[in-house]
Amino acid sequence: MVRTQNIRHSYEQGLDIQFPDLDIAKGEALLILGESGAGKTTLLHVLGGLLKPTEGKVNINSTSIYDQSNAHLDRFRGDHIGMVFQQAHFIPAIKAVENIELAMKIGSGKIDNDFIQDLFDRLNISHRKDAYPSQLSQGERQRLAIARACVNKPHLILADELTSALDDTNCAAVISLLKDQSAALGNSLIIVTHDQRLKDHFENSITLKSWRS
């Protein structure tokens, strides 16, 4: 499902990061741990099609994602990849459910309201559908972010520090929800974090070495 080869990324400032090869099967989950500066976000962006690495290949669903045009990559990202970030940002001018509808419209071209309702039910935020993002709590926002990541039924979900800002209760709840959704959709899941609390929730984990000397 997801396979990387010899990924290396050099920043203009001189920072040069080499990443281990990954190979994740369909439906599998992988936890990538690492201290800050280890290149976690860089790796996640490379996997998500947001940052073309200086060297190496990323294959998702047998497509070498950086060997296609930018337009195709945008399309591919919308179709195949869902992402969750540490800070859940939404468009403040529209309601929670409208943010999800928009993501679905952009990604799939059409809006499936039944599926969205289903997602909201499973994430326990149905009662907050018509709230504006600014009215949501941190935990609700993160659940809404998971809804956004799942709405286009991606093959791969990438999560970047999604629990760092949450307390233990919310952290456990959000992780189990993410895993459940992932299982329900049958997609692969990669989480990068420095949050050691997550170790217990995942069977597979690797640790990135810090490249800062």
Binding site: N70, G107, R148
Partner: peptide, 13 residues
């Protein structure tokens, strides 16, 4: 940030 997230969702520049 929200605009970048629209791009993550597949929006074209």
């Amino acid at each position: 940030y929200e605009l970048a997230l629209l791009r993550v969702n597949g929006a074209r520049p």
